[in-house]
Amino acid sequence: MRDDDIIVLKEPELTAAERLYLPQILDGLKTTLRHMFDLQRRRAVVHQYPEQKREDTGELRTANYHGVHRLNKDPDGRVACVACFMCSTACPAHCIHIEAGESPWPDREKYPVKFDIDELRCIYCGMCEEACPVDAIELTPLYELVSCTREELILDKEKLLQVYEETKAVKPRKNPPVTDYGLTGRQSLDVAQPNVERKV
């Protein structure tokens, strides 16, 4: 970006009345009062949660909802995670703890011996999902996450795989299961032929 790309916006001059601040206050009061008595809108906006659920009304799009995590399984029923630590590296809340080990399967190098997510620390930003090269970790639309102790909300590998079993139908995996470490990502067409038609 060059300097002349920057548009400098000057704060607009205030009129005398605006400087006095009182008209604005009255204006604000008018707005809040209007909302106070707008019953129609209130009914339209608010859901009475335990009785009404947004997924029932179709308002919650399950495909991209950021709820409880799950660990996907590959077609053979093994954990799809390769313990690359990308999710825990990307995690801004540092809520993913992984311990890697040599996998017991011949076609895989590494697998997570331990995979814990502290759902209380998590901010549900979905960075882990973005970072995962094998689409192993995903956020499900499950949002009803309660427990009596904090420890229960540190989900370990078994629980996360269990979440996958429960939510298999809810959120189809975006890509078919792959073992090529995410090579099938959608690359930009422009970078496809690096050696051709370069500017001299």
Partner: peptide
């Protein structure tokens, strides 16, 4: 094999660094 996710060298690998600096983004 592009198995950087499971490769211990990832992060200090010359192949990664040079590819990022001057390599192609995809393989033909």
């Amino acid at each position: 094999p592009l198995d950087c996710p499971v490769c211990d060298k990832a992060g200090e690998c010359y192949l990664q660094d040079y590819t990022e600096a001057s390599g192609p983004a995809t393989s033909r």
